[in-house]
Amino acid sequence: MKRLIRNDAILIAVIAVVTVVFALVYFGMQKDGGNAHVIKNGKEIAVYSLNENMTVPITDENNTNVLVIENGKAYISYADCPDKICVNHRPVSKTGETIVCLPAKLVVEIGE
């Protein structure tokens, strides 16, 4: 049992170290983004500058999401899906950050 608990500790330490290294590299490389790319079903359908405040509805036959760009940050203010995960997501502004709406197959991705 002692050996098993020691191994558990090693495993958890390894995961922690790997996670921290990845986090430092990834989040260290992030810069302030310039554009919000709207990707629907894997295809980019629009690009909006983060410098302009705006409210854009993104609709298809099944789903509606509303994208808001405000003070250099992008967030989803409305979604007609039941889970509201994208609406609760914090505003994104750094390169590589995304907001995902799984039911609508929508990704808002911040680019340079």
Partner: peptide
């Protein structure tokens, strides 16, 4: 499903 590899970065947070 989303055909987007970028969202893989969530794994860093979800690992922790």
């Amino acid at each position: 499903v989303l055909e987007n590899i970028q969202i893989g970065y969530y794994m860093i947070i979800l690992c922790a």
